[in-house]
Amino acid sequence: MMAAQPLLTLLLLVLLVGCEAESPLLRIGTAAPAFTLNRLDGVTSHFPEQYANQVVAIRFWADWCPSCRSEMTALEPVYRQYHDRGLVILAVNVLQPAETVRPFVTQLGISYDVLLDTQGEVTRQYQVMALPVTYIIDRKGIIRTRILGESTPEVFTKEITGLL
């Protein structure tokens, strides 16, 4: 049954994206779509207003994604190094309940915010079709980079340092 979960989630992602045929394409250099999601700790996050004048990496992930796990762990030291300079990482979990997400995040020991997209609305808004994917948003709320697949700390650092 466990092997069916990734396939089911991928199918849901494809269906969710397919339902939004009229949504505009996200492009580098355009404003990042606004959203409101609950964090894993129960606090509501409002993007972009809550993160004004910060560089925000919006990462989409799920616990069944092997490269999501390794990337989340690898980016933790980068987050700690640059957080005081204005880096925020919003790790948006795709279509999983808090009961699944909480032990996974606890095991990884990450300190950046984890958001729950249990209905897939933000995933659809950001046109996510595979995991992981990361959008890097500058201090003015403009999409500057999209990283498809697993990012290394070196690539991630290179993309954010010019924006900090």
Rank of each mutant, 00 (worst) to 15 (best):
V43L: 15
E20Y: 05
L25P: 09
A4E: 11
L40F: 00
G42C: 06
I58W: 02
S23P: 01
Q5W: 13
V43F: 13
V14M: 12
V43N: 15
S45N: 14
N38K: 13
L7S: 08
G42Q: 08
L13T: 07
N53S: 13
G42K: 04
I28T: 09
T36V: 14
A4K: 12
V56C: 02
P48C: 03
E49Q: 14
Y51V: 03
L15V: 08
S23N: 12
G18E: 09
N53L: 09
L16C: 03
L26C: 01
L16M: 09
H46E: 12
H46A: 12
V55E: 02
V56N: 01
Q54L: 07
L16V: 03
F35P: 02
A21P: 01
A52L: 13
F35W: 07
Q50C: 11
P6G: 07
P33Q: 10
A21D: 05
G29R: 08
V43S: 14
G42M: 04
V55Q: 03
L12F: 11
A4T: 11
V14D: 10
I58G: 00
P6E: 06
R27G: 05
Q50N: 15
L7D: 08
I28G: 05
H46C: 11
A32P: 00
A57W: 04
T44Q: 06
C19E: 09
V43M: 15
L12Y: 10
P33W: 08
L8I: 07
Y51I: 05
L40Y: 00
A21L: 09
G18D: 07
P24H: 06
Q54K: 15
F47Y: 14
L26Y: 00
Q54A: 04
Y51A: 03
